[in-house]
Structure formats: structure tokens, C-alpha cells
């Protein structure tokens, strides 16, 4: 596939609006419901997730192309020639991706604490939660093994970044709604999570209006 600006733009529109990770693909619902009581925390979580998603997409792209895919360029193939033919996608993808994400989150946390304490103060408490956010593992899988077409490094990273932005937008919209809901007179049995789910249903309905805009 040729890499053009148009192609990247298609990916961005598709992942942010048409196939929004939260509202159309059901990924990352735990933080979506857990950290959207306040706009500031939704913002912090969304930024931290965007950061980790971009990095995770890029790193898992390397792992997928140079360690898991069968072929001449497989680095394990240098030691074990049979791996050049079979590849290791089925056996190692889940374990390697989750380890990469866990390590990355730890690394980001450590680096951030040393280099920019202000940002660390803002994002710090959300970082450990990201390891078990299914949106991050989801974007890694959708950029490599489960991609609709073989992606280039740039496309995979852009997809990761755009997915994070889509997540951030959904988080911010939801936190705005929930701040309003908190002061409204909601029936008792609907208070808390049920009304949040029903608001999400309406948001998802609105986002369905984007479907058909791009085909990716």
C-alpha cells in the first residue's frame, strides 16, 4: 500500500470518529466509566492513554515484523532456522504484547518522574491503570495481527495516536455529561452506572452518524 497523506488522513478519521474505540468498538470501557466523574481526571487519563497507545503501536509493530512474522527478516530465525518458516504469531503475540505494554508503562512512569515532574503529577496515578486497559492491547492487535491490511510503521503509529485521541474525545464528552448528571434528579435505580450506560448508548447512536464516511 502506498503511503500518502490521504491514506493517513483516512486512518485518522476512521479511528477517531467512525470506529471510535470506546463508542463503536467497546474498548477501554473500564476507565471510560471509572475515571469520568471529573473533567480533569478524564483529561489526564485520556492524555496518558494517548501517549502509551502511540508508543505501544510503534513498539509492537517492530515486534510483529521482526520477531513474530515468518520470513527471512525474522530475528529468531538466525538462531532457530525453523522459525523462519513458521513464525510465532499464534503462540507469542498475546504474551509479548502485554509484556511490552507493561514494560512501556513502567518506563514511561520512571522517565516522566525524572524529566517532567509536573506532567508526572498530572498523569502519575493513571499510568499504572493503563497496563490493564484493553484499548491499549486492542490498538496493538489492530495495528499488527488484526489489521485490515499490512500497515507501515508510520501508519501503525498514526493509528495508535488517533485511537488515543478518539478515546480522549469520548472521555471528555462523557465527563461533561456526567458532571451535569450529578446535579440532576435521576431516578434512584438509574443513579450512577446505569444512567452512564444509557448516556453512552445515545453518544454511540450519535457517532453512528459518521459511519460510511470512510471505508477502512
Amino acid at each position: 500500500m502506498e503511503i500518502g497523506l490521504g491514506n493517513l488522513f483516512t486512518i485518522i478519521i476512521s479511528v477517531v470518529f467512525v470506529n471510535n474505540f470506546v463508542l463503536a468498538r467497546f474498548l477501554g470501557l473500564c476507565p471510560f466509566l471509572g475515571v469520568t466523574q471529573k473533567t480533569e481526571s478524564a483529561m489526564g487519563m485520556g492524555m496518558a492513554v494517548t501517549f502509551v497507545m502511540t508508543l505501544a503501536s510503534a513498539v509492537t509493530w517492530f515486534i510483529y515484523n521482526y520477531l513474530l512474522l515468518p520470513g527471512e527478516h525474522n530475528l529468531f530465525g538466525v538462531l532457530f532456522p525453523t522459525i523462519k518458516e513458521t513464525g510465532m504469531i499464534d503462540v507469542l503475540k498475546t504474551i509479548s504484547y502485554i509484556l511490552v505494554i507493561a514494560t512501556l508503562v513502567q518506563l514511561v512512569e520512571t522517565v516522566m518522574r525524572k524529566t517532567s515532574p509536573a506532567l508526572y503529577e498530572g498523569l502519575g496515578i493513571y499510568l499504572p491503570l493503563i497496563t490493564t486497559n484493553c484499548a491499549v492491547l486492542g490498538v496493538a492487535l489492530l495495528g499488527t495481527t488484526n489489521a485490515p491490511a499490512r500497515l507501515s510503521l508510520l501508519e501503525a503509529s498514526v493509528q495508535g495516536f488517533a485511537a488515543g485521541i478518539g478515546f480522549l474525545i469520548a472521555m471528555l464528552l462523557m465527563s461533561g455529561i456526567r458532571e451535569r448528571l450529578a446535579v440532576l434528579n435521576v431516578p434512584r435505580s438509574f443513579q450512577g452506572v446505569p444512567i452512564a450506560f444509557i448516556s453512552t448508548a445515545l453518544m454511540a447512536l450519535a457517532f453512528m452518524g459518521f459511519s460510511g464516511m470512510v471505508s477502512w
Binding site: 434512584r188 435505580s189 438509574f190 450506560f197 444509557i198
Partner: peptide, 30 residues
């Protein structure tokens, strides 16, 4: 619409509200 994304959120939201309603009507805490 029920097998698409909005239907999923709606069904779970209504089910959770239903369980809360049952608990409330039996006088338990939510």
C-alpha cells in the same frame, strides 16, 4: 440497532437499572 453498538450500551444500562430497582424495592442498599 439492538445488535449494533448503541443497543449494547442500552441493554446493559437497563439491566443494571432493573437489578438496582429490585434491590431498592426489597429495601437493600444499592
Amino acid at each position: 440497532i439492538m445488535i449494533m453498538a448503541p443497543g449494547a450500551f442500552l441493554v446493559l444500562g437497563l439491566l443494571l437499572a432493573f437489578f438496582n430497582y429490585r434491590k431498592l424495592s426489597r429495601g437493600e442498599k444499592v
